[in-house]
C-alpha cells in the first residue's frame, strides 16, 4: 500500500512552490550508497513504494534499503465528469516534495556493483533524473 501519514492536522493543502536546492537531506547518512535526485518535483507515495519494491526484489533480502523521503502533502482532484465549482476536490494521493540534490533511497550492506544495479532499477521508477552517489568517508 502506498505511503501516507497516519494523522494530519488539515485534510487538504495548497500546491505551494519548490524553491531552491536541497540544503539538508542531501548526503548519504544511513547506508553506503544512495540515489540522489537531480531535479525538483513531487514524488507520489506509489512511486516511492515502487522504488522500494524494485530495490528489495533485486537485492534478494540481502543488505538494507532506507527510504529517506515521506509523502506528507495531499493532492486533491475532482471526480470525472464533474462540473467545475462546488469547492476543492477530495485528496486523491500523497506526494513528497523534493528539491534538487535530495537523497531519496539508500542501500547498505551490499557490494557497490549490486547497490548500483538496484538503484538503477529504482531510478527507472522515479519521476525525475537521478544519480548514484557514494558515502563520503574523508573530507
Amino acid at each position: 500500500m502506498a505511503l501516507m501519514p497516519k494523522r494530519v492536522k488539515w485534510r487538504k493543502s495548497q500546491r505551494g512552490h519548490i524553491r531552491g536546492k536541497a540544503s539538508k537531506g542531501n548526503t548519504v547518512c544511513f547506508g553506503q550508497y544512495g540515489l540522489q535526485c537531480l531535479a525538483p518535483g513531487w514524488i507520489t507515495g506509489r512511486q516511492i513504494e515502487a522504488g522500494r519494491v524494485a530495490a528489495t526484489h533485486y537485492l534478494h533480502r540481502e543488505g538494507k534499503v532506507y527510504i529517506r523521503i515521506f509523502p506528507h502533502k495531499p493532492v486533491s482532484s475532482k471526480p470525472l465528469e464533474t462540473r467545475m465549482g462546488k469547492g476543492k476536490g477530495d485528496p486523491a494521493y500523497w506526494v513528497a516534495c523534493v528539491r534538487e540534490g535530495t537523497v531519496l533511497f539508500e542501500i547498505g550492506g551490499v557490494e557497490e556493483g549490486v547497490a548500483r544495479s538496484a538503484l538503477v532499477r529504482v531510478s527507472h521508477k522515479m519521476p525525475f533524473r537521478c544519480r548514484f552517489v557514494r558515502r563520503r568517508y574523508g573530507l
Partner: peptide, 8 residues
C-alpha cells in the same frame, strides 16, 4: 572542514 555544494 570542507563545505560542498547541494549535490555534494
Amino acid at each position: 572542514a570542507v563545505q560542498y555544494d547541494h549535490l555534494g
